[in-house]
Simulated scan of single mutants.
Amino acid sequence: MKKILYSFLIFSSASLLAQKNPATRFAVANDIVGTVDLFTGKENIIQSKQVYKTAASLPQNLKKFGYIADNGLVEYKLKKGYEGQDRLSLAQINEGHGVSKDSPVFVDGYEFSNPDTMIYAEILNNVEVKDNNGKKSVFATSKLK
């Protein structure tokens, strides 16, 4: 009985860790992933904004981000000279936390698996390394706790 209960608790906690946060709205600017919240209040650096409500409505250049478009996706074009915000590749994030560079990174429960994907560093809050099906992975939230 203890084994069954223990197994259930492990499974439940793993499921909770991997749940997608329904409040997270991702955004992409210059092929770099951020959140809509990241760009709120920074209207002075935004040249244009395009909102896509579903993954199916994404244009060809954004199809590769379909896995994070559950709540739609916003594409920002930044004004010239404002492209230099801090950004990291998934491989850099993993290596900085002592994890294999090819391991997926989870942000608000969304799995990012391409190590070349670039993410704005500012959205990586509350970063932890946790076990993910026997492998170490980086888990982060986009909101400060």
Rank of each mutant, 00 (worst) to 15 (best):
1 M>W: 09
2 K>S: 10
3 K>M: 08
5 L>W: 01
5 L>I: 15
5 L>E: 15
6 Y>V: 14
8 F>L: 14
8 F>E: 06
9 L>G: 08
11 F>E: 00
13 S>M: 14
13 S>F: 14
16 L>N: 07
17 L>Q: 12
18 A>Y: 05
19 Q>A: 10
19 Q>V: 10
20 K>R: 15
25 R>S: 13
25 R>F: 02
26 F>D: 03
27 A>S: 13
30 N>R: 08
31 D>S: 12
31 D>K: 10
32 I>S: 04
35 T>A: 09
35 T>W: 08
36 V>F: 09
36 V>K: 15
39 F>P: 04
40 T>Y: 09
41 G>E: 09
41 G>Y: 08
43 E>F: 03
43 E>S: 13
46 I>V: 15
51 V>A: 11
53 K>L: 13
54 T>F: 04
54 T>W: 01
56 A>W: 01
57 S>N: 10
58 L>K: 06
59 P>H: 02
60 Q>P: 02
62 L>C: 09
64 K>Y: 02
66 G>A: 14
67 Y>L: 07
68 I>V: 12
70 D>R: 10
70 D>M: 02
74 V>Q: 07
74 V>G: 07
75 E>G: 01
76 Y>A: 09
76 Y>T: 06
76 Y>G: 09
77 K>S: 14
77 K>L: 12
79 K>Y: 06
79 K>Q: 13
79 K>R: 15
79 K>W: 03
80 K>M: 07
81 G>L: 03
83 E>T: 12
83 E>H: 10
85 Q>K: 09
85 Q>D: 14
89 S>M: 02
90 L>E: 06
91 A>N: 01
92 Q>S: 12
92 Q>E: 15
94 N>T: 06
96 G>W: 08
97 H>L: 02
101 K>S: 12
103 S>N: 11
107 V>R: 01
107 V>S: 02
109 G>E: 03
110 Y>V: 03
111 E>R: 14
119 I>M: 08
123 I>Y: 05
125 N>F: 00
125 N>R: 15
126 N>V: 05
127 V>F: 00
128 E>S: 08
128 E>T: 03
132 N>F: 11
136 K>L: 11
137 S>F: 01
138 V>I: 05
140 A>I: 00
144 L>S: 13
